[in-house]
Amino acid sequence: MAKKSVLLVDDDAVFVDAVSAVLETRYEVRTAANGREALAAIAAAPPDIVVLDVMMDHLSEGFDVARALRSSEASRAIPIVMLTGVDEVFNIRMEIGESWFPYDRYLQKPVAPETLLATLGELLG
């Protein structure tokens, strides 16, 4: 069976490299450094799951990507894991007026490698 694919989106190249090393043990890993690259990569070839940082160039760039994914028929079913340095409460505060949180899991950095693998394993079945 072919490996499932993960798109890892984060603007910190070192973090991306470290997490990639973990994910590569089970998945085919692609990476993007910002929201624009992420959407382009998904449009080119939809991954099985997306792991998103929240704050990149813009404060809530990760959420923008997640919303774009959920708004499109083609990408609606792709599970989304937020993996980010800010806590969920802060994000909810920034998103005041937004009752729709378009993600499946919220993990705060730093996350233990086994936790990340377990979360992805659960979402991908």
Partner: peptide, 21 residues
């Protein structure tokens, strides 16, 4: 200050993850 949480936490998280890996 909230932004600074990100500014401080992000590099720390990267260090921690790199070391864990």
């Amino acid at each position: 200050m909230l932004l600074s949480a990100h500014q401080l936490r992000s590099p720390l998280a990267t260090v921690k993850t790199s070391l864990d890996v």
